[in-house]
Amino acid sequence: MATALTWVDATAHRPLLSTSNYMSSPASVIAVNAPSTDPTDPSQHRVSGMRRGWITALIVGAPLVLAGCNAYPSYGADPGATKQGSDTFKLYSGMMTTGIVIGGFVAVLILWTVVRYRRRSDEMPKQFHENLPIEILYTAVPVIIVGFLFFFTVLTENNVDATQPVNATVTSTGRPVVDITVTAFQWGWRFDYTGLNVGVVGETTNGPNNKGPQMVVPAGETIQITLVSNDTVHGFYLRDFNFSRYAQPGVTNIFDLNVLHTGTYDGQCTQFCGLYHSEMLFSIRSVTPSAFESWASAEVTAGHTLQGSPSGAGNIPPPNTRTTPANAGPSVASSATPKQKASA
């Protein structure tokens, strides 16, 4: 059902909101030629220029060793596989550098004081206290520092939380955002591609080596996730995306993801949700838009449609009809899970 595609490799491109024409129909996928992104795009420049200025400002005089030759040392985090995630990463990295510099300064001050003023004689030290100028200084300087941190936090936060209207067209591709409803339940995930009539669902209590259901998305495009929960609070989290959001009953959360490259990214429920919380895995596979098109049409052909027939995992009922099992015991696990409740 999907039309043929001509697609430029999208790994380097960032979709921008525009009003170019697009076409869309619920059960098919339409793609339009996508020009690659101009690296001199002014909007990108503005952001990174600002970040660079910030880093410079914050670590003035700081030992460059800390940052190495890299403006954004990773400090254990992932550079971010999404546009949003890389924004967050830069904020994290900058804040961590700031924290290490300031924390390091205070730690050195403590240790130096401890060593320098260790008791060497019984002579009584001068009984001084209070020093108003210093007290004002160590009040004002932290205020300024947290002011900076807050400023860059708000900038990043606005980028990360920005969402595009679902029907918005992406200039470079001419297609609307891919709209996916993610339903978390005990203990699995369901991904419904609203515009494409594709539904993927998987339960993860089938043993420890199950990787859970996989969400396939086109690289470089805007994906809009509508996150809901069927029972308890869950956490939709992908380490490489530097992002998490609660899936909660009674709350609908909407956010955009722009996966930058093709690849597979592991995700996992982070908010404790009962017995099999630790096995509530999923993954996101980002493919070229053309591969995405063929995947979507193959899914439709295979009958994995919205709220309809199960996808691979078997007999999992669609969202909102499933009764929640008590988290009490082995019955939920059926035969598949070796873990049994101890007779504690």
Partner: peptide, 27 residues
Amino acid sequence: FLLIFLVGGVTGVLLASPPVDFMTHDT
């Protein structure tokens, strides 16, 4: 206490930033 709480305080400032909290929350 001073040294250990210092590190907790620094990482706490990081967590006060919503985007950084998004990436580390519940981990």
